[in-house]
Design a protein around this nucleic acid. Structure first.
Ligand code: MN
Ligand code: MN
Ligand code: ZN
Ligand code: ZN
Lengths: 144, 144
DNA sequence: AACAAAATAGTAGTAATTCCTATATAGTAA
DNA sequence: TTACTATATAGGAATTACTACTATTTTGTT
């Protein structure tokens, strides 16, 4: 995620006011390597800004998504946010539901099939890997 | 999605009872080319089994996911189910949120990076394409 | 400092999903 | 076929995630 300076500029450019709440949500998301839910970010930000409301955190994150300062990564039922703007892909553990970033240059230039390019305006192509993480694998083995 | 015979066998194998509700949910999902939500399937099944409860449809679909007779495809806020067990990939319109299947042989054999294979047990690798569908594109153009 | 537009806090409302439990049913074994 | 038991269901309550509303506050700008 870009630095605060860039964030200020992006806000100005989009006509958004720079508020302590937005700054703190931005810093919190930037500091996350996981893909936190609104609630997770709310809890973290609340330590710094005890009076912030859940709605503000939620609204702010959706605003970030709208202006391209972050994006949504689809959980099963809980929306998760991603502040990592670099090209990357996701591994998701089907058991604990954690989502982990990974980079793989080979995946960065996959070409969508011709017929798809004609039917849709393609904005983004990512690889989605599902499976079991080490922690969950070890838990499974212990049960046996 | 496989035929009813296969479904019966799968149920027996997993120790699940074959009920009219499960059969109907299975048939309904198999007949869908879209990626319906629980509610969408509930509405369709209700026409055949007017007394079925929402909970049963939901529970049944999750059971299908558990036994591998279907799988969940992550919506933003609504869980969607996929009865297409063949290897395929998804295009999602960021505006209307529709999810469309596509096949592309080139994508079927992508190898996950070495380091990922060591850290996780990889079960599935799919390509996820996001963008705008034709309908939404045309709507956008009309507004201008 | 004064102003207007935008943002926030607190709360209420809505939608999606899961839980609870009394009743009903499927599969099994007599 | 009948009786039995484990499993499944219907209906409703509860929970969870998210969004809407509005009075008040704050930001950015004169
Ligand atoms: Mn990520
Ligand atoms: Mn599909
Ligand atoms: Zn895991
Ligand atoms: Zn669309």
């Amino acid at each position: 995620m870009a630095d605060l300076e860039t964030f200020y500029n992006l806000c100005m450019q989009k006509g958004l006011k720079i508020t302590p709440q937005r700054i703190e949500v931005y810093k919190t998301l930037a500091a996350c390597s996981d893909h936190p839910s609104v609630d997770a970010i709310y809890k973290r930000v609340k330590k710094v800004l005890p009076n912030i409301s859940f709605d503000t955190v939620n609204r702010t994150l959706n605003t970030f998504n709208d202006i391209g300062a972050a994006f949504v990564v689809g959980g099963d039922n809980v929306k998760r946010f991603d502040g990592n703007l670099e090209k990357h892909h996701h591994f998701k553990c089907v058991k604990c539901r954690n989502i982990i970033d990974f980079k793989h240059n080979e995946f960065d230039n996959v070409k969508v099939p011709e017929h798809l390019g004609q039917m849709f305006k393609v904005l983004k192509t990512t690889i989605f890997v599902e499976g079991l993480c080490r922690t969950c694998l070890e838990k499974d083995n212990k049960l046996k």
